[in-house]
Nucleic acid binder design. Structure first.
Lengths: 153, 153, 153, 153
DNA sequence: TTTT
DNA sequence: TTTT
């Protein structure tokens, strides 16, 4: 039951913000965390870690982070499997964030969109993405009905 | 550069101990970490996290842990990719452990083989497994020559 | 804002359970965490870390942990100061736990008192201890009125 | 034996760099880590955590950090006691850092002194401070001979 | 003031 | 004794 991850790194792309059928916000992005030492070719290596954030934290991330932003982050490791379009079972390991600290100077962050990072309403008429049974990090979006009971917290 | 994971869980199977061509020990195993809450079906869910340990720590794990052992563990998240037998690129996320605490009572652990967990020599004439360019968690073992420079530390 | 601590160790004594004037439960105890290496005298050294838990978690700790119990624990570092009986300002650093995992086999833990660790009511007519403005780890208990706004969460 | 701390915060003052009698570098500083929520008076609270770094890491900290610098940091919690000038035993809890990440833009950091943070030699003829048996965070410097065996790693 |  |  102890399952804790702490990372400091930079976003490899803008966060993607989506909503479950019942309207719960989810943000996904990848954090590049540089390794301490260079590899055999003398290059600075990095690990690329997939992050998921839910609800208000999802919207804060979408509002305040963009490609290149530096962020500190806490969460837990989660493993999931889903069937890809070829019908093959794929296993993924990702970090479900529960605390994100924005480390880039305000000017280097995305604008706060006036909302102060608050809990904005999901856009009406949005497309329903199936990011629970399929991979939220892929862009594979057959519509599937998932209940909110599937949410991790 | 901050990249830290701390887990407490139980091994899903005995650790697998292998050696690089140059004789460096590597142990791999999976840690089941129970989630705090039950899922929609009322079952206790768990995350199944792949662990890699190197050198002396690999041999300690192989000597003192077995299926069902409880362990606490620290390390860093690492992402790798390799090409599977179908020639498809696969991405994996795993934890490279640098500290393992054996939490099962001694009687429930594997016997220490008299070595006190010390740095036993790799068996002469062992098969060379290729677990660096391919997935150490699969049992896919075409022989490949990797140099020790590829080792993470 | 990233402030995270993870520990595995053993209680040096039974947890102490107290209540604020407004009835909020607080448990305090000390966790002995062995160091990896022996000291110059060849003895196994340990660090003795003061832990505070609030509300339901306080009562779970009081119900399920006792002197010698092994526990894993997450929380945040907190610093406080208070004036001791000599009127001198004292600074303390402690861990406010938000997740505790009981690692001792059930037989070695305190009995669960039938409550399943639930949120038992504070005993009526209990003495009001002042553990906020003074040190909860001392047994210094002049009655002081603190509001619940002082609680850390 | 699991004892891990991860913090992100800002230095409250320049690091202090000292040397043991045998020439080992030690840096000490305090990290202010803001709390997530404001206190009852509406002020942003913080925790002030004492940090110790040894050897090369001590010199890196002294070279690259100054008052106000933002830093991420990993380490372990350590408790110590020493006798103050009134002959009273004092207990302290501090973090022994083993990894520090400089998060302030280079311009806001102290200049690297050309050394690239390398392992500079301790200045000859330096004063011997006794920061092991007394509190390294106070400025209490009677000369005491400590052996390097007292060093934590 | 310390646990196994 | 505290940082932005």
């Amino acid at each position: 039951m102890i399952n804790r991850v702490v990372l400091v790194g930079r976003l490899t792309r803008d966060p993607e913000l989506r909503y479950t059928p019942s309207g719960v916000a989810v943000a996904t992005f990848t954090l590049a965390v540089n390794r301490q030492f260079n590899n055999a070719q003398g290059e600075r290596d990095a690990d690329f870690i997939n992050i998921v954030a839910w609800r208000q934290l999802a919207e804060l991330c979408a509002n305040y982070l963009k490609k290149g932003s530096q962020a500190g982050l806490e969460g837990r490791l989660q493993t999931r499997s889903y069937d890809n379009k070829e019908g093959k079972r794929v296993f993924v390991t990702e970090v479900v964030a529960d605390n994100v600290q924005f480390l880039s100077p305000a000017g280097e962050r995305r604008e706060g969109s006036g909302s102060g990072g608050g809990y904005s309403n999901p856009p009406a008429g949005r497309r329903q993405d199936d990011f629970m049974n399929n991979d939220p990090f892929a862009n594979d979006s057959r519509t599937v009905d998932i209940s909110d009971d599937d949410l991790p917290f």
